[in-house]
Amino acid sequence: MASGVKPRVKVPKKAAAGEAITIKTLISHKMESGQRKDKEGNVIPRSIINRFTCAFNGKSVVDITMEPAISTNPYFQFDATVPEAGEFVFTWYDDDGSVYDTKKSVAIG
């Protein structure tokens, strides 16, 4: 349904063990709220990303429920502690059932 959806993630390649690193994420998405009407007066159906999760080595870091008032191209920035080398998995869930994911590895050093 939604077109031009592309996740982008920025994670440092290296971190010290136990260090809190800053993670930035953005997904390009039009986030149609379901409140707007087209020229003919018909409601444009809602089409948003409704959930965003981040997991590190299978352990949940954040799990966010997103609502229709969130504007286009939702951006999340958060800090995460890295206890060991591993992989972050970022997942976005679309209203239309699509799931978009991106993986980023972090080394210790």
Binding site: R8, K10, K24, L26, S28
Partner: peptide
């Protein structure tokens, strides 16, 4: 460039 929303459009 990550924070700059223009780059979504540059990617397009």
């Amino acid at each position: 460039d990550f924070d700059n929303p223009s780059f979504v459009f540059v990617d397009v």
